[in-house]
């Protein structure tokens, strides 16, 4: 490697590391702050001089971390699973059966993706209220299912590219449509479906506006709504605030740390070509 090349590589790494610092700083600083006592909180030390667990003790006493994480995770898992199911069925139906109305359905689903959520919240809230779904898991999850439209669009491409002879062979082997779909098509689209499931889960996990409206009570609150409520209560106790933020972040980051190779690869490969 020439000196010039080495310098280019080093400066490239320097820039990327700088951006990494930018990306990681909020979390790192939150962790640092969460271990600082009231006196040390003003100190700009990254590693607390006198680390304490007081913030965590105090926070855990009033902040229902487990409840929030479970609420959010359960809803996100259910939403992702259902969205995947709806998307698989619809994509298969649109490709496998050529029927009048199919193209219109596809266009309607595609157009729905770009409608801003904020434009729909008033009627959706009214509908959820009418159904008695305010402060329920069903109310939290139901409107999110409309996000399956994106999945239909993505899967449509993959189902269409599915080798026709495999479908024919399965039919001749005696498979009906259900068998073809679940035993031939789905197993062979697994990488795409995994990527889509991850995408759906993250999207639902990060959903904010709708939970804010329908899950303001602590029973059903999601991570974000709960944290925001905690912030309103706690005012300026930044040590506790950061402890709470770290507590709700930890499960996500842990899961991400364990599966990151996989999640990133699902995106890079699943959408790359």
């Amino acid at each position: 490697m020439t000196v010039r090349e080495l310098r280019a590589t080093l400066s490239a790494h320097a820039l990327v590391v700088l951006v990494c610092v930018f990306s990681a700083l909020p979390v790192v600083w939150a962790v640092s702050t969460s271990f600082k006592g009231p006196a040390a909180i003003f100190a700009p030390d990254l590693v607390p001089a006198d680390p304490t667990l007081d913030n965590y003790r105090a926070t855990l006493a009033t902040f229902p971390v487990a409840r929030l994480v479970l609420n959010t995770g359960a809803v996100a898992a259910a939403v992702a699973a259902l969205q995947l199911l709806l998307a698989v069925l619809a994509a298969y139906g649109l490709v496998r059966f050529r029927f009048r109305g199919g193209p219109v359905v596809l266009t309607a689903l595609a157009a729905a993706i770009i409608v801003p959520q904020q434009c729909l919240i008033v009627p959706n809230y009214l509908l959820a209220a009418q159904m008695g779904w305010i402060d329920t898991y069903v109310g939290l999850a139901a409107p999110q299912l409309a996000g399956c439209a994106l999945g239909v669009l993505l899967l449509h491409q993959h189902v269409r590219a599915f080798p026709r002879s495999l479908l024919d062979a399965a039919q001749i082997d005696g498979a009906g449509h259900a068998t073809v779909l679940w035993r031939i098509v789905v197993p062979n689209l697994r990488p795409v479906l995994v990527a889509l499931a991850v995408l759906f889960f993250i999207t639902s996990w990060n959903e904010y506006l709708w939970p804010l409206l329908v899950a303001s009570g602590t029973e059903r609150a999601t991570v974000q709504v709960g944290l925001q409520a905690f912030q309103t209560e706690q005012g300026n106790d930044w040590g506790r605030m950061m402890a709470a933020a770290v507590l709700v972040t930890a499960p996500v980051l842990l899961a991400y740390g364990l599966a990151q190779r996989w999640i990133v690869a699902a995106f890079v490969q699943g959408t790359g070509r």
Partner: peptide, 24 residues
């Protein structure tokens, strides 16, 4: 049969996107 496959997806989208749009 084709409609049975697309109905669930289409249903939630109509219920939570298109009808609300009209209601708005």
């Amino acid at each position: 049969l084709p409609w049975l496959h697309v109905a669930p997806a289409l249903g939630v989208v109509v219920l939570w996107v298109y009808l609300p749009l009209l209601a708005t």
